[in-house]
Nucleic acid binder design. Structure first.
Length: 617
RNA sequence: GGUCCCGUAGCUCAGAUGGAUAGAGCAUUUGCCUUCUAAGCAAACGGUCACAGGUUCGAGUCCUGUCGGGAUCACCA
């Protein structure tokens, strides 16, 4: 609710009490924006008061309208349509509002409140490069950090790196067996892709080994004795794959051996592990840089995977957890609609959730945040429900401030991306592709042919990335997304470049103001406001509320849709009205000031999405 | 089977706390650059808001059920 809407709510509530003698809670009064086809700026829904007035909706609206106009100076006029009271706000209000926006680069943002939140928005595995799914995760999370900052939080941006386990051992073993000492430099391959390639090779070699093994007499015998009725050989071996890898595979046993050596800190394995992970980090850094994101604090699973044992002890002593005869420890969450869940294995080792419990506690002690946001795909909804509920029962002080920003998976028109089928959309490829597209389209237009190469490249990089980022962020996080690599991302219509283009138009005006030294102070004498101008003012007016709801709901798509709507209104305004050649000097000043304000808000809003504005395009 | 999420135009998506005739973009068709950048503007076409009940002055929005799609229910991470 904006200040003016609250004023109107209060006035209506007063009117109802005064006219019909029944006190009404002002927050219950509905004050919406008036739809474009009607005259007025804000509309009050009158139906709820009809019971009190015992008169017709339109008559009631008239009585309330007269009272409100009397009471609130800023209400210039009112009219009634079918039970809706439409109120028009005076130019004085809009003019002073416009001036305050144009003068304030932080319009819509709140000052620092002293509150602190941690956002974990990337959790990559170190055995392969980042892909489109990671991009959605990272962009949503990054935008979320910007939005939380805008409402006054100090935000600690973190990533947890899954740098240990079977997966990275596969890459390591594969390189050790077949690598012949090759390096990313020697092969001229981006270093995280280099590591990923060895992982892929491992899977390939393992598949070959499995196929060969299926011909052995042991395999034939297993098939004949254990197959289910009607099961073909192919089906049987498909199901058997994990068991084979764990019990019969030579590569499988070598990987497990390597994992054990890693756990016992074998120097040779540790050296190899560090070497390969460093290659991956180098590659990740470049991709993060291209995406324009950064972190304040890094967590490595190799440091945290043993955490959580003491929290299990605490849980047992508080009787939040219970122990079975075999020594495993459990939590019973059935009364919260969840299930029984293991928190410690019978052999005393951690499971995934043990680690998360421990990490949460450690972070709280270390960072002192009151809120924690985890940006993780919706596959893990259940896990986070269990995690949060468990922390709550343990009485952790931050338990009320935990939030899982859950988002839907990115899918291809053919379904989920699959490494095995080679349908994974690689992050670096995609970034290169959108940049190429932006350059191609710019060349077709020829608008900035004369601009210096470096400046041109930077502008077009922003356009390409703007297209990609907007494409992803405009969709509500919890919805799954379809991405068609054939069509890639658009640059026309409801897109990032569309919004950037409206900014570029404004930027052109601002440069001209500077060159020609236009005096904007006479804007306040402009009184004949056009609908296209009012529409922009109303939109600007909503910006602070939009940021607040985006923060409350952890939903950057609200900002994206807002920016699009604002840009759309601006394009219409630009088309319909002359700005520099306006009818009067007052109109010219007003439109230029309005343009300036719109430009600032667009830049600010897109900044909350992690999208930079080009100067020219 | 239990729990959760989704179902809006041919396609991709908007539709705060229930409010006025359900909106954009893409695609298709058609207009608009001697005037501030046409990555733009305007128009046409396109809908039983999955279906059936219910709540009420009013339901795409809330409740119940049905049907479709997805996720998850490991001493995996």
């Amino acid at each position: 609710m904006s200040d003016i809407q609250i004023t109107l709510q209060n006035a209506v509530a007063q009117a109802v009490e005064h006219l019909y003698g029944t006190p009404t809670e002002s927050s219950k009064v509905l004050v919406n924006n008036t739809p474009p086809d009607f005259q007025g700026d804000y509309s009050v829904v009158i139906f709820p008061f009809v019971k009190l007035s015992k008169k017709s909706p339109d008559f009631t609206a008239g009585e309330i309208g007269a009272f409100v106009q009397e009471k609130v100076e800023l209400v210039k006029s009112w009219n009634v349509v079918k039970g809706f009271l439409n109120l028009e706000i005076s130019e004085i209000y809009w003019n002073s509002f416009l001036q305050s926006v144009a003068e304030n680069h932080h319009f819509g943002k709140k000052p620092f409140t002293g509150r602190k939140v941690m956002v974990e928005y990337s959790s990559p595995n170190t055995n392969k490069p980042l892909h489109l799914g990671h991009i959605r995760n990272i962009l949503l999370g990054w935008s979320c950090t910007k939005i939380l900052e805008a409402v006054g939080f100090e935000v600690i941006k973190t990533q947890i790196i899954n740098d240990r386990g079977v997966a990275i051992c596969k890459s390591m073993l594969s390189w050790k067996l077949f690598g012949e000492g090759k390096t990313p430099e020697s092969e001229g391959v981006k270093s995280d892709h280099f590591v990923g390639d060895w992982y892929v090779l491992f899977e390939q070699k393992s598949k070959e080994e499995y196929e060969q093994w299926q011909q052995s007499s042991i395999a034939k015998e297993l098939f004949n004795t254990r197959k289910k009725t009607e099961q073909t050989e192919k089906e049987f071996f498909k199901d058997f794959k994990n068991k084979w890898f764990n019990e019969y595979s030579k590569l499988g046993s070598e990987v497990r051996d390597m994992l054990l050596k890693w756990e016992s800190h074998d120097p040779e394995v540790m050296a190899l592990w560090k070497k390969m992970n460093n290659w991956v980090y180098q590659g990740f850094d470049q991709t993060y840089g291209d995406l324009g994101v950064s972190f304040d604090k890094l967590y490595y699973e190799s440091d945290t995977y043993l955490l959580g044992k003491d929290i299990v002890e605490q849980g047992l002593s508080k009787s939040v957890f219970y122990k079975k005869e075999d020594g495993s420890v459990w939590v019973d969450l059935t009364d919260a609609g969840l299930d029984h869940k293991v928190v410690l294995r019978s052999d005393g080792t951690s499971v995934y959730i043990t680690q998360d419990l421990g990490t949460a506690q450690m972070r709280y002690k270390e960072l002192g945040c009151e809120q924690f946001v985890y940006v993780v795909a919706d596959e893990q909804n259940y896990h986070f429900q269990v995690l949060f509920e468990t922390l709550k029962r343990l009485g952790e002080p931050y338990a009320g401030g935990l939030h899982h920003l859950s988002y839907g998976l990115v899918e291809l028109p053919t379904g989920r991306m699959k490494t095995r089928e080679g349908t994974v959309v690689d992050a670096d490829d995609l970034i290169a592709e959108v940049t190429r597209l932006a350059k191609e389209q710019s060349a077709e237009r020829g608008e900035i042919d004369g601009v210096a190469m470096a400046e041109k490249n930077e502008n077009l990089r922003r356009v390409g990335m703007g297209a990609l980022k907007f494409f992803i962020i405009k969709v509500h996080p919890k919805k799954k997304m379809i991405f068609n690599p054939e069509e890639s991302v658009d640059m026309q219509g409801q897109t990032g470049p569309y919004i950037q283009y409206s900014f570029v138009r404004i930027n052109g005006l601002m440069q001209r103001i500077e060159k020609e030294g236009v005096d904007l102070s006479m804007f306040a004498k402009y009184s004949d406001m056009k609908p296209q101008e009012k529409e922009l003012l109303v939109a600007l007016h909503e910006y602070p509320e939009i940021i607040q709801s985006a923060a409350d709901e952890f939903d950057p798509s609200l900002i994206a849709n807002y920016c699009y709507a604002l840009a759309k209104s601006y394009h219409r305004f630009w088309h319909d009205l002359s700005i520099f050649n306006a009818e009067t000097n007052e109109a010219k000043a007003f439109r230029l000031l309005l343009s300036k304000a719109v430009g600032q808000v667009l830049k600010s809003g897109m900044g909350l999405l992690g999208i930079e504005m080009p100067d020219r395009m």
